[in-house]
Amino acid sequence: MTRTALVTGGTRGIGAAISKKLQDEGFIVAVSYAGNSEAAAAFSRETGIEAYKWDVADYDASAAGIAQVEADIGPIDVVVANAGITRDAPFHKMTPEQWHQVIDTNLTGVFNTVHPIWPGMRERKFGRVIVISSVNGQKGQFAQVNYAATKAGDLGIVKSLAQEGARAGITANAVCPGYIATEMVMAVPEKVRDSIIAQIPTGRLGEPEEIARCVAFLASDDAQFINGSTISANGAQFFA
């Protein structure tokens, strides 16, 4: 049976790796993106995966986008809530705007993504909800009070949804990546990057494909008894 998957923020970085891996595993995949239409078009040309534009921070836009995805590819069996942003600043300098932007995308955005899909999963008695959290949601991070709060909150969402969805055949799990060799991380000054790597016992950054393999496992039938769990993929940087 061919299943369908939606990956938010799925055209770049970790999201792109997840989308490609799920496609390789036989899923029919759709992705969403918020702003970079050029990158999204390039991703679709490369993979043949349709990219849909909406802001996960907007519930109505999310619901409309998801409805269009389901009209095009069918009911969504697997949803990967990956879309996220950073607006870093030390707490004493953080503005309310920086706080709310991150909360609205990284935390409320998970609600806005999963909530429209949840009734259909319950009705069909099957679903996989996978949220991409972060090591910094587990341990905190300097100048990321907003980001760490959202990523910790995402873990609370997963644990609660797991209990609500279990009898309906729905699992909800999280993946907490450590520092991954994405475009954003590789763009930081080499000196800063070296200081990050020095904190990772494996001595290297992770690869997006390593996170994608975690997601593919959680989306598979082999993971049906794994529910409310967190996979920490951080090179032994932190133990939850």
Rank of each mutant, 00 (worst) to 15 (best):
V114W: 00
G178W: 02
R12A: 11
G178A: 06
V79H: 12
E123F: 13
A168W: 15
M1L: 06
T171F: 05
G109I: 08
G10P: 13
R204C: 02
V80P: 14
R128A: 07
N82C: 10
G127K: 09
C214G: 02
I196P: 14
A63C: 15
V145F: 03
T95V: 04
A212E: 14
I14K: 02
Y179I: 13
E207M: 14
A63E: 15
E183M: 04
A149C: 06
V110M: 10
V29S: 10
E210K: 03
R128P: 11
P96A: 05
D77G: 13
F43N: 03
P189V: 00
V80K: 06
K125Q: 14
N227Y: 05
V175P: 10
S229C: 08
Y52W: 09
Y147H: 05
S134Q: 04
V114L: 03
P208L: 07
A233S: 14
D104N: 12
P96L: 08
T171V: 07
I103S: 12
E183Y: 03
P116M: 11
H92Y: 15
G203C: 08
E207H: 11
L22D: 13
N136G: 01
Y59N: 14
R45C: 01
D55H: 11
G165C: 04
Q101E: 10
N146Q: 13
G228W: 00
A83I: 04
P201N: 12
Q199H: 10
Q199L: 08
S232Q: 06
K93M: 14
R122P: 15
S229T: 00
E97Y: 06
V114Q: 00
V56G: 12
S37Y: 01
R3P: 15
I130T: 05
K20S: 01
I196E: 11
G140K: 04
A198G: 10
M121Y: 10
Y52C: 08
K159L: 09
I231A: 02
A152I: 00
S37E: 04
T150F: 00
A67T: 15
R12D: 06
R45Y: 00
P119V: 09
V79C: 01
S19T: 09
A61D: 08
A34W: 03
Q98A: 04
L6I: 05
M94D: 02
L155D: 06
I170R: 13
T182P: 08
A168H: 13
I197Q: 07
G127M: 09
I117G: 08
T95R: 01
G13V: 10
A181W: 12
A57L: 10
D72W: 09
T11V: 07
L22H: 12
A67K: 15
R128W: 01
Q68K: 14
D55Y: 11
K21R: 06
E70T: 02
I231L: 00
S160G: 12
P96Q: 03
V192W: 08
M94R: 09
G9D: 03
D77W: 02
